[in-house]
C-alpha cells in the first residue's frame, strides 16, 4: 500500500510532516502464542501545510481512520514519525462522552471539555450552541429524550465551535435531518476557508474533489 500524492500548489509552510509512517495492530497472540500483526499503514509520507484542505481517500479498511488518529497523536506509529511543528491537532469528535441521562447543557459542557476546551470556554458559548442546534428548551431535558436527529444536532453544535490548528474530519458531513445537514455542511465548509487547515476523510470522491486542494490516496 503506497501513498501516492497528487500535488496541487499549496500555500503556507509545513506544519505537520509524516515520514514513512507505519502502523500495525496485533491481531492475536500474547503470552503463550506468537503474535500476529495486521499492517494498517505502511510507508506513508506527506506534508500538511498551513491552510491546506487535504482529502484522504481509500477503500474500506485502507487505514484512513488510523491515519487520522496518528496525525491527531492519539496513536503512535510503529515505524517512521509524525513531526508536529507546534500546532494543535484535534479529531472532530461528535457526541464525545455523551451521557443520555444528563441534560443537553451538561453534555455540551463535558463534551467540549473532553475536546480540550476549558469549562469557561464552553459555558461562554452555551447560547450559541443552543441556538445553532435549534433545540430550544429541549437543551435542559435529558439527552435520552432526544430524537437521534436532535442528538446529532447537539453534537455537531458543540464541535462547531472548535478551531484547532489542524482539524481532522472523519466522514462527519452527514449529520441530522436534511435541513440541518445543509446548514451543518455550509457551516463546516465555511471552516474550510479562513486559514483553517483541515484533513478530511471521505468515501465520496465528489466531496473530496469539491473541497480539497490536495488528495492522498491510501
Amino acid at each position: 500500500m503506497m501513498a501516492s500524492q497528487q500535488q496541487i500548489p499549496a500555500h503556507g509552510e509545513v506544519i505537520i510532516s509524516l515520514k514513512d509512517v507505519g502502523v500495525r495492530y496485533k491481531r492475536r497472540g500474547g503470552l503463550f502464542r506468537k503474535p500476529e500483526y495486521f499492517q494498517a499503514l505502511e510507508n506513508v509520507s506527506f506534508d500538511i501545510c498551513r491552510g491546506d484542505t487535504l482529502g484522504i481517500v481509500g477503500r474500506n479498511g485502507a487505514g484512513k481512520s488510523t491515519l487520522l488518529r496518528t496525525i491527531a497523536g492519539i496513536i503512535q506509529p510503529d515505524s517512521g514519525e509524525v513531526v508536529n511543528f507546534g500546532v494543535t491537532v484535534s479529531l472532530l469528535a461528535l457526541q464525545a462522552g455523551f451521557d443520555p441521562e444528563l441534560p443537553g447543557t451538561d453534555n455540551a459542557i463535558i463534551s467540549g471539555m473532553l475536546m480540550g476546551y476549558t469549562r469557561r470556554q464552553v459555558e461562554s458559548r452555551m447560547s450559541d450552541i443552543t441556538e445553532f442546534s435549534e433545540l430550544g428548551d429541549f437543551i435542559y431535558q435529558p439527552v435520552k429524550t432526544y430524537s437521534s436527529g436532535m442528538r446529532s444536532r447537539l453534537g455537531f453544535a458543540v464541535s462547531m465551535f472548535m478551531t484547532p490548528g489542524v482539524l481532522l474530519l472523519d466522514e462527519i458531513l452527514s449529520v441530522g435531518d436534511k435541513e440541518f445537514r445543509k446548514k451543518a455542511e455550509s457551516e463546516m465548509v465555511k471552516k474550510f476557508h479562513s486559514d483553517q487547515t483541515i484533513v478530511l476523510v471521505s468515501h465520496s470522491e465528489g466531496q473530496i474533489k469539491k473541497l480539497c486542494n490536495k488528495v492522498i490516496e491510501l
Binding site: T88, G116, Y117, F161, T163, P164, H193, S194
Partner: peptide
C-alpha cells in the same frame, strides 16, 4: 468572518 476574528470560534489550549 474572515475579516474580524469570528464571534463563534474559540481555540482550545
Amino acid at each position: 468572518e474572515g475579516e474580524g476574528e469570528s464571534v463563534h470560534n474559540i481555540s482550545p489550549p
